[in-house]
């Protein structure tokens, strides 16, 4: 494998290094959300009753549906990588596009979910929300910030996967050189994993 040779940096390709770099980046993402998970734990510990009440306002059905969508999209992402490994370019593109469609579906659901809350006047800084006990303000503050930041990651992921589709079409991503797609896949799985923690914390534990 060429990766063990140290050739000229500019034409140098080292898949192991790329994978390592991506994993290190994923650590930073985990810690970014980790800061908020600390906030969540502390505030939940301090306000168990208010968190219990506030969580009942969230729509578990939409949440479950979204979880299913994201998990499926992780599967299609993995399938697209397997497809390119087997040199099936069109199948890989197909699965990448399915992943994007599912991600968009997730965002549409999110839009309706947030929209309904806004309609009821529950959003950060609203009079309706500020009249509630402090624990519920904190719950919704965390809810909006954490799911919002996760949503931004989903959008970035969509952009990233579309770039990968373009690269696949242009034969930059091929059977022998699919590290870019694999990195995008790793990123997408991270987005998925964070949601897997957000979902029970906000929707299921009531």
């Amino acid at each position: 494998m060429s990766s063990s040779e140290h050739t000229v940096s500019h034409v140098h390709r080292d898949d192991v290094a790329s994978r390592m770099g991506m994993w290190l980046f994923l650590f930073t993402e985990l810690l970014l959300f980790g800061g908020m998970f600390i906030l969540y734990s502390v505030y939940r510990y301090n306000n168990p009753d208010a968190f219990h009440l506030a969580a009942k306002e969230l729509n578990t059905i939409i949440g479950t549906f979204n979880t299913a969508i994201l998990l499926t999209s992780s599967l299609t992402m993995a399938l697209s990588i397997t497809a390119i490994q087997r040199n099936n370019k069109s199948l890989s593109i197909f699965f990448q596009l399915i992943t994007v469609v599912l991600a968009l579906g997730f965002m549409v659901n999110k839009y309706f979910e947030w929209g309904a809350k806004f309609h009821h006047g529950i959003y950060p800084g609203s009079n309706e929300l500020l009249s509630k006990p402090a624990g519920e303000v904190l719950f919704f503050g965390l809810y909006y910030v954490m799911t919002g930041l996760h949503g931004i990651h989903v959008l970035i992921g969509i952009g990233l996967i579309l770039f990968m589709t373009y690269y696949t079409v242009k034969d930059i991503i091929t059977k022998d050189n699919y590290m870019k797609l694999e990195s995008a896949g790793l990123y997408w799985h991270l987005v998925d994993i964070i949601w897997i923690f957000l979902f029970p914390l906000f929707y299921l534990i009531t």
């Binding site: 906030l39 505030y43 301090n46 800084g125 402090a134 904190l138 503050g141 909006y144």
Partner: peptide, 19 residues
């Protein structure tokens, strides 16, 4: 947005910010 995660007036904890 006045989220209130740290602001004591909205129920947040400023010491948590310091941590």
């Amino acid at each position: 947005f006045k989220v209130g995660l740290f602001d004591p007036a909205l129920g947040g904890d400023p010491v948590l910010y310091q941590h």
